[in-house]
């Protein structure tokens, strides 16, 4: 019986009480589970992610994290990978990844910019895990899109979080690069981290997620196996029949 990490209970989500974007959200994430979130653009996927991160309060209902209210989560327990990654511009890969270790820095370590040996060590390990050890002193601005995503993932890995919220983490990556990123997320989940990942491509989401949820109208629904099969693939993914 694995632990329940995130639990959203009959929540309304959005910015306007009168007209919420999503209503009656029921969402449970168990330890080590990868759950996909799909839906057309502008429907509220990012808003749902930001609500689960505790950045926006739900309009009604409640969100609990590891059995307690979301607001009580400890530092570093939730990692966010925003749509545009949220890397600190003009700083090195090493600096960006090290920031994931900041939640466990003692006050004097952060006040005097003296990361502990453990913080440096785990930063190095994470950078190696995503295969960027040659780039550790390179500015993130000079990396490719796929490499930048790796940096954002490495930063989340260093947190050793219980939950990672990844918004459109695969974006418009080519299949090969996307596969590499998916493997990294899979490794993270195998270590017990739960992952909620937005992917606008339901076909791809189905290939690597344990479950896929879809936003339809104002509802969050789970795609059953049959239903998933019935979901038409995006036309661009279909090869034209000869």
């Amino acid at each position: 019986m694995s632990e329940q990490i995130l639990s959203v209970n009959s929540a309304a989500i959005g910015f306007d009480d009168v007209e919420p974007l999503i209503e009656g959200v029921e969402l449970r994430l168990r330890e080590g589970e990868i759950v996909g979130l799909t839906g057309r653009s502008g429907i509220g996927k990012t808003t749902l992610i930001r609500t689960c991160a505790g950045l926006i309060p739900p309009l009604s209902g409640s969100i609990s994290f590891a059995g307690a209210p979301l607001g009580d989560k400890a530092r570093g327990e939730v990692g966010l990978i925003p749509q545009r990654l949220g890397l600190i511009q003009h700083q090195t890969v090493g600096y960006n990844v090290l920031m994931g270790a900041l939640p466990r820095a003692k006050w004097y370590q952060s006040a005097f910019s003296l990361p502990s040996a453990e913080m440096r060590e785990s930063t190095r390990n994470a950078v190696e895990a995503v295969g960027l050890q040659d780039k550790i002193l390179t500015s993130v601005n000079s990396l490719s899109g796929g490499q930048q995503r790796r940096v954002a993932i490495a930063r989340a890995m260093v947190q050793s979080p219980k939950l990672v919220l990844a918004d459109e983490c695969l974006g418009e990556l080519d299949a090969e690069t996307a596969k590499g990123i998916i493997n990294l997320l899979r490794d993270l989940a195998n270590d017990g981290t739960s992952i909620l990942i937005v992917d606008h491509n339901p076909v791809r989401a189905r290939t690597f997620c344990d479950r896929v949820l879809q936003l339809r109208g104002k509802r969050l629904v789970e795609l059953g196996d049959e239903e998933q099969d019935a979901t038409p693939a995006l036309p661009v993914l279909r090869r034209p029949e000869q």
Partner: peptide, 26 residues
């Protein structure tokens, strides 16, 4: 930009660390 600050806030970092390690370097 808003996103690095939201990453820091999601980690639960105190405001002075958000400013010092995310906003000021950016």
């Amino acid at each position: 930009s808003r996103e690095p600050l939201e990453v820091a806030r999601t980690m639960g970092l105190p405001r002075w660390q958000v400013a010092r390690f995310f906003a000021i370097p950016e």
